[in-house]
């Protein structure tokens, strides 16, 4: 008993120590971790860590297309060796928030969560990205969000009607409102003049019948995933409560899942880039949803405010000339 008593205070100290360790990380993980380190001076001699998405990403293709690195979009070996791959926009943002010497790119529809977490938006070629500059075309790193649908439903006319109606819904005022709320860039005038769902629903007879046994498969780009989920959730209530199944693995899966090699696995695919040469959609099965932009971001502590296409090229290319922050910030 005496021996046990001897160990009890030791045990208690250990427990306190351990719980301190467990608890203290509670505050340091809500994205405020970077604020603890803003007192650290930004060391410009550090190497730049370029962050990129994987080769399936449409955002990557859009970004590299604008900085003269089209071939690197599907080939990792043309990238600089210090690059690191992240899996999604959210991953990109959390990495930028914790690593002061990183630079990366993400989609405009994640811009509010980015600025909340401590990521600084860098202007491109002197233009700050905002809805106005994107709509007007001044901000040049833009791309369209596109969709593609299955061209062969195997005779399932119910699914075909629902999918056609969904495509029309994306063009109504309500659909455009949802797209805009979730970060897509839509011209306010277009919303004002678009038809309402009530006006066009008559074109799709039987759309509001009970469809709770119908599953529609959505997939494709992860940048469009949030928009797609919200659209399908709202549209489902208007179209008989069909089940919307989302499996977003990248823009590459959109064409192959609807009309390409894996045709039939997806009913509607979304892309965050244009169709490339090997993807030729059938007539009337594809179109534009909205505009989007690619935003370049750095950590809050980074003094960089503007970057040019040429500088981006030299950061990301294998034979690029920019390696440390000194080379850019001078």
């Amino acid at each position: 008993m005496k021996k046990t008593l001897r160990f009890v205070p030791l045990f208690a100290c250990l427990t306190l120590l351990a719980s301190c360790g467990g608890e203290s990380t509670n505050t340091s993980n809500t994205g405020a971790s970077s604020s603890q380190d803003t007192t650290v001076d930004f060391d410009t001699t550090q190497e730049i860590t370029p962050l990129t998405r994987d080769t399936n990403s449409g955002t990557r293709e859009a970004f590299f297309g604008h900085i003269d690195l089209e071939d690197a979009a599907s080939d990792d070996s043309l990238l600089t060796t210090s690059a690191s791959v992240v899996a999604s926009n959210g991953d990109m943002i959390s990495n930028l928030a914790t690593d002061e010497y990183a630079i990366g790119y993400f989609s405009f529809d994640s811009i509010t969560s980015a600025t909340d977490e401590g990521v600084k938006v860098v202007s491109f070629e002197g233009v700050t990205p905002s809805e106005d500059t994107i709509v007007s075309g001044e901000y040049s790193l833009t791309r369209h969000f596109n969709y593609i649908v299955r061209n062969d439903f195997g005779g399932d006319s119910v699914k075909e009607t629902i999918v056609d109606a969904f495509v029309a819904y994306m063009g109504t005022a309500e659909g455009l409102n949802i797209i805009q709320t979730n970060g897509g860039v839509v011209d306010p005038e277009t919303i004002n003049n678009a038809p309402t769902w009530a006006e066009i629903s008559a074109n799709y007879p039987g759309i509001s019948d009970d469809h709770s046994d119908v599953t529609i498969n959505f997939g494709g780009s992860t940048s469009v995933e949030e928009i797609a989920r919200q659209l399908s959730a709202s549209f489902s209530t208007l179209a008989g409560n069909f089940i919307a199944h989302h499996d977003h693995t990248g823009s590459g899966a959109a064409y192959s899942g609807t009309q390409g090699d894996d045709a039939g696995t997806l009913d509607i695919g979304f892309l965050s880039r244009e169709f490339n040469d090997s993807e030729v959609p059938a007539e009337n099965t594809s179109g534009v949803i909205c505009t989007d932009a690619v935003i370049i971001g750095v950590n809050e502590a980074n003094p960089l405010t503007n970057i040019t296409a040429d500088q981006c090229h030299n950061i990301y290319a294998l034979d690029g000339t920019i390696d440390t922050w000194d080379d850019i910030l001078g």
Binding site: S28, S33, D37, V40, Q46, E47, T98, D99, E100
Partner: peptide, 16 residues
Amino acid sequence: PLVRSIGRAMGLAGTS
């Protein structure tokens, strides 16, 4: 976060 603070304390500024 532990490794991050150790790395910063050791002077490696870029560690995340």
